[in-house]
Structures are given as structure tokens and as C-alpha cells.
Write a protein that binds this DNA or RNA. Structure first.
Lengths: 328, 328
DNA sequence: CTGAAAGCGCTTACAG
DNA sequence: CTGAAAGCGCTTACAG
């Protein structure tokens, strides 16, 4: 069997034209039964596999979507990407991944190089001109940026912060700490604003420490918290990672969670329920977000639809576990 | 500016042939200075971007590598994949990801469809015929399967198990538990055999419970352990996840780690050092594994080299943290 | 140094 | 129902 079998080889073997082979494969019903059988036999005999690259060039599509994320090593994305791959795969689309924090020129070319039909964007901090310059459908997930004027799908981050604050108030806490996300990140900003607004609305004391979603920033905040003269009895962190860092450092310093301080995280990563103590946190339905965003993109591709600036906001869920307790 | 600019548009604008535009872009030195300037100006003016799909078809390569993993949602892979993407990106290659547990027919076509130049395989349980049927360079990482006859890169899993056993022996433990990985997985098998052999060599008691790398299997094993008449004072689990599940369940049942039982995991996932207690575990250098495997593949692609069945085995590291302690 | 032409491997109007 | 031919957007021997 030759290493490389082209459609012409099959055509020769079956004694038909390449056009007929192509049709027998892509729209069998349009080909005579006897001819089709001969073609199929030739396909079997030669071990022919269609060359997708050639077909795609001819059909002017890539049958591929590009997932662009700010940090592919971030485990938060893995479930989202897995869900995207599943949906795309079922639609016959390949999934390409790339880091969105790379050379802007290269980034720009991604929307013009003919290798992707659409882009799933997990980053809200790219230059708007860059995103608008792409001549490809774009759907944004988790993060968002109104200047892009693309559809976006996410949970209601402000409402989530409100739920966290309400839960702590219900437990009797009157002075709350927030370890914020990065100041230049839309998620960090929105969660912080949600926290501050809710605390004010409930008439609670509110202190905000800067952070960046990492365990290190959580640990740092725990040390800052320990030094405060009037320590808040509860903390809401902008991410689970940050909460883990905060709690670990509390433990190291001899403080108990939730005994000395209640802690609420954000994301509900796989690990949150198995941390000790099991982490009370805001659930982000990552598989659902990935699936739904991919479905939106796939359906837009199928319909050659021009995407609008629609915003889909999903209600958050608070997972109440063991890291929060009534104020003592 | 037209939405779609082709090389012919640039050629027309510059008053040259498409061949000259192509050359001005890919090998500028071969084109006259004045001509080159005209072409570049035309490229600027039209906003031309090369169509990679067309170039790749003509050059008979895909400029893309495919990463195939058994479970893309598994956070263990994220760092590996990120490293792969980084190396590939620097070499001008795109990265495509796909689930290796999918329709075999589709899987087979991945090696023949012209959309990837090489495959990075994170799965050792695919049918050997399938893998050998791919007419593309394949490099395997973490898992391996000699029947594939492809290069493989991994840590020495048996030696790692030996190190874990030696550490526990040094702490005075004489009866050890192993929570195994899946029986049909080469990693699970190798770690278990390493454990059993080392325990025998050291003259230690050894009990093995079945598992599958998951937290659930760790928790299940903890319950089984608690019921044992003569409980081992130390456990070595086939994965960190499993260790987390084991420890959490111990806590739930009122046992202390490492007070009542020392625990060693495997992988050193991001989280291991921040678990409470910080987990003693075998470190897998995931970024290095991903980087090195990608480099191997990229260099093979560049040299059109036929890959051999070379095996690169990296020495493991034991990270001693707080989940192991002397036998009391 | 530059251009005309062929060709990568397909698909798809257009005829018949 | 089938085939000849054009063409997707490039690159690259081959001439000149």
C-alpha cells in the first residue's frame, strides 16, 4: 500500500474520475449504486484517507476553532477546554490552542491566516483593535470586554460576590476582608466592586487587600490579616487558589479556619471540596461554560451568522462547605 | 481595505508577479531592493496577511503538531500542554489538541489528514496498530508503550516508587499500604511493581489496594484501611489526587495524617505543597517533560528525521513535606 | 533579478 | 449519473 494515496489514485483504481470519487465520499446518494460500490472498494483497497488540508483550502474553511487563553498552564481552563474540544469534535472541528499573551502581530495573524474558522476567547485584556480586526466569529467566555463587541458568556460575578457577603452576614460576621484579584482584570474588578457594594448595602465593615488570584497572594494577605489590630472574622477571596494560600498560611501561623476566620473562595475548582477544611466557594460551571460557548460558536459558523454583542450571564451558585462558620 | 486580500492583490498593487511577492516575503534577499520596497509598500497598503492554509498545502506540511491525551480535563496535563505550546509556538508551529479516547477511525485519520506534521502522545493505551499506522513522527510523554516503537520521555516510575518506600522505611514504618493506579495503565502497573519489589527488598510488609488515580478511590481506600485489623502505618498512593482523597477521608473519620498514618503521593501537582498537611510526593517535572518532548518532535520535523524507539528516562525527585513522619 | 506556468489535493459549477 | 476543467491561494523549479 503506497504511503500517500491521493484521490487520483482511487479514481484510477476504480476507473472513474476524481470528481466521482469525491462525490461518492461526500454525497453518496448522488452517485450510481454500482459506481459507488466500485469507488468504495477502491478506497478500501488503497487505504485512501481524505486530505483535509486540501479539502479545506478548496472549501475555504479550516474546520478548526482556536482557543485563546492568557495562561494555558492554568488548571482553571482545562475543563473548559475539554468541553470545547468535545463540542467541536462532534461538529467535526479541530481545536487549536494558543497563548493569548504573545506577540501581537502573531496574534493578529491568527484571525487572518485561514487556519481557524472562529475564535473562543478566554482573555478580556487584549487590545480591542486587535480583536475587532479579526475577520472571524469570536465568542468570549468567563472574561469579557465590551469594547470587543462580541458575544460573551459568563456567570454573574457581582451577584456572586453579593452571595458571598450575604452568607457571611447570615453567619453573624460584621467585618469582612476581601482579597482582590488583579486590578487590571475585569473579574477582579467586578468581584471587588460586588463585595464593596454588598458590604455597604448590608452595613458591614469592609477591608480590601490587593491580590492576583495566586496562592502566594493569599498567603501574603493572611500575614497582613494577622497583623491587623482589628482582624475581620471572615474573608472572601477572588479565587480558590487565593483562598487555599490564605488558609494554609493561617494554619502555619496557628490560626484556625473557620474557627478564627471564615473563608470563601471563588471558582469551585476540582480541589475545593477536598481541601481541609472543604472550601465554601462560588461555583463556576466550567464544563457548561465551555460547552455552551463552543455551541454558540459552532452554530454561528454553521449558519455563517454575524455575531452580535450579546451577553449571556449565568446565575452563580454558592457551595457552602466547611470553611465558613458562625462568628464566635 | 478589502476583507480578503490575496497575494494577487498585492502583486497587482505593486506591479509585479505573485512569484515576486512571494519571494519578497519569504526570501527578501533574493529580490531587488527597489522591487522589494514596492512590494512591502503594497503589503502595507493592502493589509495583506499570508494564507497559511494555502502555503501549507503547497509546501506539503501543516506547520502544526497534535497533542493527544486521554483526558483533556485532567489538570495534570495542563502544564505539559502549555510547555508544548510554548516550544511549538517558537518554532512557528500551531498546536492542536484532541482527546485520544474517541472513535478509532477518527483517531486513525488524524495521522493522515494533512493537518498535523507530528503527534505528541500522552496515552499509552491506544492500539499499537493504530499508532504504527500513522505516517507521522510520534513522540510519547509520561506514559509509554513499547509496541508503538516510538521515542518516549518519562520519569523512572519504578525508581520513584522505590524512593517512596525507602523514605517510609527510613521513618521506621514496617508495614506499608499502596493504593494502586488502574490495573490497565502502564503507570499504575509500574508504580505498583516498584512498590512491591522495594518493600520485599527491604523486608517490609506490603498491602496493595486497587485504585484509579482519583480522589474517590483514595477515599475508598482510606475506609478500607480503617477497617483493617492490622493497619499499615504508612501509605503510598499512585497519584496526588488519590492521596488527597485518602487524607481527606482519614480526617473525616477522625484519623490524623501523619499522626496515625503517613501518606506519600505521586506527581507533585501545583496543589500538593499547599495541601494541609503539605503532601510528601514524587515530583514530576511537567513543564520540562512537555518542553523536552516538544523539542524532540520539533527537531525531528525540521530534520525530516525518522524517529527511533529511543527511551529517555528522567530521575525522579522525592519532595519531603509534612504528610510523612516517623512511626510512633 | 523576475515572470509564466505548473502544481499541492481536493471540490464543484457546468455540460452532457 | 458522470467527466473535464477551473480554481482555492499559495510556492517553486524553470527560463530568460
Amino acid at each position: 500500500m503506497p504511503v500517500k494515496v491521493r484521490i487520483a489514485d482511487v479514481a484510477a483504481a476504480a476507473g472513474v474520475s476524481t470528481a466521482t470519487v469525491s462525490r461518492a465520499l461526500s454525497s453518496p446518494d448522488v452517485v450510481g449504486a454500482e459506481t459507488r460500490a466500485r469507488v468504495m472498494a477502491a478506497v478500501q483497497a488503497t487505504g485512501y484517507r481524505i486530505n483535509a488540508a486540501a479539502r479545506d483550502l478548496r472549501q475555504q474553511r479550516a474546520r478548526s476553532i482556536l482557543v485563546l487563553a492568557p495562561n494555558l498552564a492554568n488548571t482553571f481552563f482545562s475543563r473548559i477546554i475539554a468541553a470545547v474540544q468535545e463540542v467541536a469534535g462532534q461538529a467535526g472541528l479541530a481545536v487549536q490552542i494558543s497563548d493569548s499573551r504573545t506577540d501581537p502581530d502573531l496574534l493578529q495573524s491568527l484571525g487572518h491566516n485561514g487556519r481557524a474558522d472562529g475564535i473562543l476567547l478566554l482573555d478580556g485584556a487584549l487590545p480591542p483593535d486587535l480583536v475587532r480586526g479579526w475577520r472571524l466569529p469570536v465568542v468570549q467566555v468567563c472574561e469579557w470586554n465590551d469594547a470587543y463587541e462580541v458575544p460573551s458568556l459568563r456567570i454573574d460575578n457581582a451577584a456572586a460576590a453579593r452571595m458571598a457577603v450575604a452568607h457571611l452576614r447570615d453567619l453573624g460576621h460584621t467585618h469582612l476582608l476581601h482579597v482582590a484579584g488583579p486590578a487590571d482584570n475585569v473579574l477582579g474588578q467586578t468581584r471587588e466592586r460586588g463585595f464593596v457594594d454588598a458590604a455597604r448595602a448590608f452595613g458591614l465593615g469592609a477591608t480590601v487587600l490587593p491580590g492576583d488570584f495566586t496562592m502566594a497572594s493569599g498567603a501574603r494577605s493572611a500575614r497582613a490579616w494577622a497583623e491587623m489590630p482589628d482582624r475581620p472574622s471572615a474573608a472572601f477571596t477572588a479565587s480558590d487558589e487565593c483562598a487555599f494560600g490564605f488558609i494554609s498560611e493561617c494554619n502555619r501561623m496557628g490560626f484556625a479556619v473557620p474557627g478564627d476566620v471564615s473563608v470563601i473562595g471563588f471558582d469551585d475548582v476540582d480541589f475545593a471540596g477536598h481541601f481541609i477544611p472543604a472550601l465554601t466557594t462560588i461555583h463556576q460551571p466550567r464544563a457548561r461554560l465551555g460547552r455552551q460557548a463552543a455551541e454558540r460558536l459552532v452554530s454561528a459558523l454553521g449558519a455563517s451568522e454575524r455575531l452580535t454583542h450579546e451577553q449571556v450571564i449565568i446565575d452563580p451558585n454558592l457551595m457552602i462547605r466547611a470553611s465558613t462558620a458562625p462568628r464566635t
